[in-house]
Amino acid sequence: MSTTFSNVNFSVLDLAPILYQQDIRTSLNNSANLAQHTEQLGYHRYWLAEHHNMPGIASSATSLLISHVASHTQSIRVGSGGIMLPNHAPLVIAEQFGTLDALYPDRIDLGLGRAPGSDQATAFALRRTLNSSPEDFPNQVEELESYFAGDARVKAVPGKGANVPIWLLGSSDFSARLAAEKGLPFSFASHFSPDYTVPALSLYRDRFQPSEHLNQPYAMVGVNVIAAETNEKAKWLATSQQQQFLSMVRGAPSQLMPPIDDIDQEWSIYEKASVEKNVNSKSTIIGDKTAVAEKLAQFLEETAADEVIINSQIYDHEARKQSYQIVADVVNG
């Protein structure tokens, strides 16, 4: 393994893309197959993210999909990147992840986010009220921890005593501060919030308080990687992700579309700038093996991440698997 990457874990973030003109069953089968593939390649963990009311993402029932992936793999850690805790009663999450831990011992992670991950109408449909606030997040985390510890008056069964590491996820400094205060591992969503990455990581490391969970800070950082045999093919494959972000800029989220030859024919100057604000060279690596190696090394130099979690929004499933293969080849030297 290259010394640049030797002390870094590499993992997979799967948004379970629903492909244009394909059904959801295909998406879920693709997730299981990609998990098997990346497990064989030596990736450390495989995370799935909670989203709702999104026609291009099939992981809304995140705990169920975690079980689906874990049942098709043997050793790779599987978890949430993340569960949006304000959408749920902490007791229910403790029971769900306690069940997952019982089914797949020492393999389950629980990454928690404080954003609703949806619009107000969807948040209301999930919670039946909008009285809760992301600012309640620290108390919700405390409550969840109490169920795992068995300290709460109500007992989580399953859940009490479960060995499920809790991670805090964020795209700003809020969760960085909380993770540091509680001595928890922290994962930053650089793949869609690149400009805040280094400040958030610095804050987390500077304020970290050792705990029973960690003696020193442990930071994971998300990055988009679209790798292919040539730079030209990688840029072409990347137009699927660009189209998906463009649909969100337009307020009409879509399924993951096939790549197109000329993305500049699809967007205005304003729309291009809006997409590139969130998906730019700081957070998205596009290219062949040589380009990926160079840009990934630079990314690690800038972030000093302990772990990198890779999102690859690629329409063709085999091309997506090949992208993760190229990254593995880079990492393993």
Rank of each mutant, 00 (worst) to 15 (best):
I108Q: 07
G150Q: 07
Q244L: 14
M84S: 07
V331T: 02
L65E: 11
Q40L: 12
A305E: 01
D109Q: 10
D109R: 09
S132E: 06
V78F: 03
Q241V: 00
F299N: 04
S71C: 08
R107P: 09
R127N: 14
V308D: 02
N29T: 10
N7A: 11
S71H: 07
P17R: 00
Y324T: 07
N87S: 02
R25L: 08
I286F: 12
F299A: 04
H213L: 09
Q298I: 02
D14K: 10
G150E: 09
N224G: 03
A70M: 13
V223I: 11
K282I: 03
S59N: 11
S133L: 00
S132F: 02
H44F: 13
G150D: 08
Y218T: 15
G251Q: 08
M1G: 15
F148K: 12
A252M: 05
Q325R: 14
H88S: 01
E95V: 15
E301Q: 11
Y43D: 12
V198P: 01
D106W: 08
A102M: 15
P138V: 05
S171L: 06
E302Q: 14
T284G: 09
E95K: 12
R25A: 12
T3N: 14
E95T: 14
P90W: 08
V275P: 05
S60Y: 06
R205D: 04
S283P: 05
S193Y: 10
D14F: 09
E50L: 04
L144R: 14
P258E: 14
A115D: 02
A152S: 13
T129Y: 03
A228T: 03
M257P: 04
R205N: 08
L246N: 05
P253S: 09
L34W: 00
V275D: 06
P259K: 15
K160H: 08
Q209P: 07
N332Q: 13
D288W: 13
H44R: 14
G56F: 07
E229M: 02
Q216G: 05
G287H: 13
S240W: 09
N224F: 03
